[in-house]
Write a protein that binds this DNA or RNA. Structure first.
Lengths: 356, 356
DNA sequence: GCCCGCGTTGTGACCGCTCACAATCCTCGC
DNA sequence: GCGAGGATTGTGAGCGGTCACAACGCGGGC
C-alpha cells in the first residue's frame, strides 16, 4: 500500500486480528493454581518457593507468554530503571559520541535511555520537570549555553548528573559532574604549535557554554595561558558557531593575515572550514599555515591534509556520567565510576614547522 | 570533591535534606476541599467543573507543586506517550540524522523517545520484547543487517514502524515503512558520471541490509541498472564496511586501476576514504578520477575537493516513520504523514569531465 | 505430646491514577 | 410548585504489580 511512493502504511489490515491483552500475574496464578503472590515470587526469583511450585509457575508463564508489566512494576515498587538525557544537539560529534557512551553504559546496566533535545524555545523548567518525572534520573550535556542553562535549573531533589565543558567554578556544590581537561589539552596543542616555531597561535573558538561575557571556555583559556607563559602575543579569538561554515568564515579573515601561521580550532568542524578557507585563499597547509583541531571526529584522519587534533574520550565521559548518576540513584552501588581517558594530541599532517 | 580530577560526585551532602514525597492527586484534593476525582478532572481539563472549583483546585495544585504521576497515569489509562527506536548505530551520519528527525517529531507530538542500540550479541527477541513493553511503540532503523533482522522479528501485535533502505519485497504485508528512493538516486548519480564522459562507473558499496547474497542493496542496484541501460561494462562492486577506513582500502585497489576514472560510493565516509587513497596514489580528483558520495554528510561540502554527493532527507525519513507509527497507535489521528524529500544530486568539485 | 520456628503460601492494602456510575445540586418549563 | 434534565460532584472498582503480614504444614527439641 503505497501512500507517496516513499511510505507504506498498513492501515486497517490489522485491527480485526484483535490484539489480545497481555497476561497478568493473576492470569498466570490461575493457570498454575497458585496465588498471584507466588507468581510474583517466582518472577522475582524469591528464594522461598518450593521447587515444584516454581516449575509449575514457570510453565504457566511461558505458556501464557507472560511478561511483567514494566509500568505497574514501576508504580508499585517505585523503581524506574530509566534515565533521560537532555542535550541541545545530537548531530555534532562531541554530543553524538557522548550520547553513545551514555547509551552503552545505560544498556549495560539494564536501564533504559530517553533522549530529549533542548531548543531555545523550550521552557526549561517545564522541560526538566517532565523529563524528570518520566523516570529515574537525568543526565544533562552541558557543552553549550543551553545545556548549561538547563543544568542550573535542575531542582535539587531530582537525581541528575552532568557532563560539562569544564569544572564548575568552585562554589556550586550540587551536581555530580564529569569533564575532560580541555584547558590542559588546549595548552598542550598550543605548545606544540609554538614548538614548531610559530610566533603565536590564533584561535577559532566554539561558542562558550557560560553566560558570563568574561568566560571564554577552557579551550580558549588553555591556549591563552600557553601563549602567556611563552610570553608571546595573544591574538583575539574569532569564530561564531560550531560548524564548518563558521570555521570557513573565520578562516577567510585569518587567511588574509600573513602573520597567522598557526591556528587552533575549537573543534574539528571549525578546523575543516578553516582548512577550506585557507585552500581558497591559496595558502598551503601545513607549509604556509598550520591548523590544529579539537575532538578527533571520525573523518578528521581522512581529510587531506589529515587533521592534527586533540582526541577526546566522549564515550568515556558519557559512561562516567551514567556511573555518577547511578551511584546517586542507588548509593550502595558497587561498581566504581571509571574516569574517562585524558585528552591526547594526535599528530597528523595539518600542523608542521613554521617556514620563513 | 574530586574523585579523579575529571569527576565530581556529591555524595551524602544530599540525603539529609529529605526528599519529600511528591504530592498526589489526593493531597491536592484534601487541600482544595474536593474529591480526588475533581482534581483529576481539573488536571485533565475536563469541561464540567465549576469555574470557582477549578480555580481552587488549580491553586492547591500550584501550592503543592503537584505534577501528575506519569507512571500511574500510564498504568491506569493504558496510554503511554512514548516510543523507542531500535538502531544498530548512532554515530554514522544517516543513522544520527534519522534519529534527529525522529526525536524532533516525537517531541513535537509531546511524546518521549527512547533509544536502544542493537548489537550482534543481542538476543533480538528478548531485546524487542523489552523495548516493546517499555512503552507505546517501536521504530526500527533497518539500514543494515542487524536492523533488518530485528525488523522481521517484531511480533505482529506490537505497534512498529520502520525506516528501511528499500521497499520490502512486495510480499511482506505487515509493517508500515518509509524509505527513500536510493535506487533512483544511484541511477541519477551514475548517469551524471557517464554524462561526464566516463566509460563506466565503479562502485564502493556499503554493506547490504538483507541476508540474501544476491541482493546488494538499492544503491548498487541503481548504479547497475544505469550502466546496463547505457550498455557499458559493470565492474564488480568493492568495499567491505561503512567507514572511511573501508573506503580507503577499496580506494587503494581502485587507484591502481587506470580504467577506474569514476567511482560512486555508498556513503560519504567511504568516499572520503577513497579520496584519501587516490591522493596517496597520486591520482588527482577530479582531473584523473571522479568521485561521488552518498548522503551529503555535513562535512562533505567542506573537504577538498568538496564532495559531489546525493543529499538524503534522513530527518524527513525519521519524521515520516514517527508519523506512520503514530497513526498506527492512534488510528483517528488527523495529521497526515509528510513524505520525505526526494534524494537530490548535489554537484560539487569531486566529479568532473573525463580527461584523456 | 506440645510448642517453637522455619519454609511456604495466601490475603489485604496500597502505589497514583483512570474509568464507570451513582448522587447531588440547579435551573428551567409548564 | 414540581419533575425533568443537565451540570457538578463523589464513590467504588480496577490498572498490574509490590509490600507487610497472617496462615498453614512440617520437623525437631524438650
Amino acid at each position: 500500500m503505497f501512500v507517496t511512493g516513499h511510505t507504506r502504511s498498513c492501515d486497517s489490515a490489522d485491527p480485526p486480528q484483535g490484539r489480545r491483552k497481555a497476561a497478568s500475574i493473576r492470569d498466570v496464578a490461575r493457570a498454575a493454581g497458585v496465588s498471584y503472590q507466588t507468581v510474583s515470587r517466582v518472577v522475582n526469583g524469591h528464594p522461598n518457593v518450593r521447587e515444584e511450585t516454581r516449575k509449575r509457575v514457570q510453565e504457566a508463564i511461558s505458556a501464557l507468554g507472560f511478561r511483567r508489566n514494566a509500568t505497574a512494576f514501576a508504580l508499585a515498587s517505585g523503581v524506574t530503571r530509566s534515565i533521560t538525557v537532555l542535550t541541545s544537539n545530537t548531530l555534532l560529534y562531541g554530543y553524538a559520541a557522548t550520547l553513545q557512551g551514555l547509551e552503552e553504559a545505560t544498556r549495560a546496566a539494564g536501564h533504559t535511555l530517553g533522549v530529549r533535545v533542548l531548543t531555545p524555545e523550550d521552557d526549561l523548567d517545564r522541560t526538566i520537570a517532565s523529563a524528570a518525572d518520566a523516570g529515574g534520573g537525568l543526565v544533562v550535556i552541558g557543552f553549550d549555553r543551553l545545556g548549561a542553562a538547563a543544568l542550573d535549573r535542575v531542582p535539587a531533589h531530582v537525581p541528575c548528573a552532568a557532563v560539562v565543558e569544564a569544572p564548575p567554578p568552585g562554589s556550586t556544590p550540587g551536581l555530580p559532574a564529569v569533564w575532560a581537561d580541555d584547558r590542559e589539552a588546549a595548552r598542550a596543542a598550543t605548545e606544540h604549535l609554538l614548538s614548531l616555531g610559530h610566533d603565536t597561535v590564533h584561535y577559532v573558538a566554539i561558542p562558550a557554554s557560560t553566560g558570563s561575557p568574561r568566560s571564554v571556555g577552557p579551550r580558549a583559556e588553555g591556549r591563552r595561558q600557553a601563549l602567556e607563559s611563552a610570553g608571546v602575543a595573544v591574538p583575539e579569538p574569532s569564530g561564531k558557531g560550531w560548524d564548518a561554515q563558521a570555521g570557513y568564515e573565520a578562516g577567510r579573515k585569518l587567511a588574509r593575515n600573513p602573520e597567522a601561521t598557526a591556528i587552533l580550532c575549537g573543534n574539528d568542524d571549525l578546523a575543516l572550514g578553516v582548512l577550506r578557507a585557507l585552500h581558497h585563499a591559496g595558502r598551503r597547509v601545513p607549509q604556509d599555515v598550520s591548523v590544529v583541531g579539537f575532538d578527533d571526529a571520525p573523518h578528521s584522519a581522512y581529510v587531506t591534509p589529515s587533521l592534527t587534533t586533540v582526541r577526546m574520550d566522549f564515550q568515556g565521559l558519557g559512561r562516567a556520567a551514567f556511573g555518577l548518576l547511578r551511584t546517586r540513584l542507588d548509593p550502595d552501588q558497587q561498581a566504581p565510576v571509571a574516569p574517562p581517558a585524558a585528552p591526547t594530541l594526535v599528530l597528523r599532517e595539518s600542523a608542521g614547522p613554521r617556514r620563513r
